[in-house]
Design a protein around this nucleic acid. Structure first.
Lengths: 219, 219
DNA sequence: GAGGGGGTTGAGCGACTGCTCAACCCCCTC
DNA sequence: GAGGGGGTTGAGCAGTCGCTCAACCCCCTC
């Protein structure tokens, strides 16, 4: 009502209103007026503080990703096993889905496909997760025979993409994500087997990889 | 121009116009007028043939998924290895991305998160892919020691979700999907190792799984 | 030739969009 | 007390939205 505030909290109100609107109503119905209403603020302030709706969404994307990553960083820091990483992802899935805290990323991600101005911010938001996951993967692969044959950065990107994709799939067909996570956890257990086999596996893997590369090179 | 046509091809014109508009301009800018313009048809026909924009999008989602799955079914039928499946996915990624033929699914998927009327059609479209992938997985796992420990249906859903997620990630940050696919292909090679180890691996996997279940049950 | 129905058309309604703007409030500095 | 600037407000413009509708064209049946 009054104008006594610093104005910085109006910015955050708008950012959080944008995240809420994105998650609840989707990017198609996210407008200056709907975000402002969710933030309890006049719609003209969107343009005063951010210049345009696109810039607000880009800022909200970064803001939301930073918040979420920071919130889960501690838990990810404890992960040292592939199985633990999957359990962590599953918990994250269940916790955040209720609050729609991951949904906003999916919405902006869809919008960014055809809106060049949103793409950099969305990529930055996803990269925040990818970087965090890469650190975990490096730790996991450090004392595993798999370590020398995999690229943690590429794998981290695959994990981030897979998580967002699964999250969206779950949104339109609830219940399937649980089975997917269970299947992936069973697969993760197999990786543990290689750890136990040790040098034998290491030699077998090396042999197998050479064959694979030959086949790929010949095609 | 003239009205001599059966009217059925106006329907398909609209469906393909919808797919084109979704892929090129995103769901936020997909309207009756924009789709009709892309189809070279009057905008009122959207409501005559489909009743509403939502219904057109739902129909287009099903139509597009069926077309794409049918187009790649033959190639998937030849896949008998995890490595081959990944190579196939990579080829599909590179071929379709140029034509935006997968992008429409991602767009409708995002819209369906908050638009209940779109969800069933989107889920059906994704399930078409998932069912196809599940068949491949069953074939792959048939004579592998992994077969008895994994759930093909859950895994298929994970694969579909991961593919769509990666596709969208690539859309906002091009170039990373290649590294992701390479990393996954290296991982797939490891699965082949287990095949070669045969009964030894089978026993080790069984042992490992029992331990994993115990840990999960205790937590 | 009269009638009818599937398919098509352009105009138009009310609602909503991004964005602008003059006016205003509050607080700080002179 | 005068002035100024950051922050806020409601009204308003031009454009697009989903959707409706009366009119129309073509072909088929009597």
């Amino acid at each position: 009502m009054t104008a006594g505030a610093t104005g910085a909290d109006t910015r955050t109100k708008l950012l959080e209103g944008a995240l809420r609107t994105l998650a609840e109503h989707g990017i198609a119905k996210t407008s200056a007026r709907s975000v402002a209403a969710s933030a309890g603020v006049n719609q003209a302030l969107v343009f005063y503080h951010f210049g345009s709706v696109d810039e607000l969404l880009a800022a909200a994307c970064r803001y939301g990703a930073e918040q979420r990553v920071a919130r889960h960083r501690d838990r990810l820091a404890d992960v040292t096993t592939l199985a633990e990483l999957l359990r962590c992802g599953r918990e994250l899935h269940e916790e955040e889905r209720a609050g729609g805290h991951v949904a906003f990323l999916a919405q902006v991600l869809a919008g960014a496909q055809t809106q060049p101005r949103l793409a950099p911010a969305t990529a930055a938001g996803l990269d925040l997760w990818t970087a965090e996951i890469e650190q975990v993967l490096v730790r996991i692969l450090a004392d595993s025979p798999l370590g020398e044959f995999t690229d943690p950065a590429g794998l981290a990107r695959a994990v981030t993409g897979a998580f967002v994709g699964l999250e969206m799939y779950e949104g339109v067909d609830p219940g399937g994500a649980e089975r997917a996570f269970e299947a992936l956890e069973q697969l993760a257990a197999l990786a543990g087997v290689l750890d136990e086999l040790g040098p034998v596996a290491r030699r077998a893997v090396r042999h197998r990889l050479r064959r694979t590369e030959k086949v790929q090179g010949g095609a």
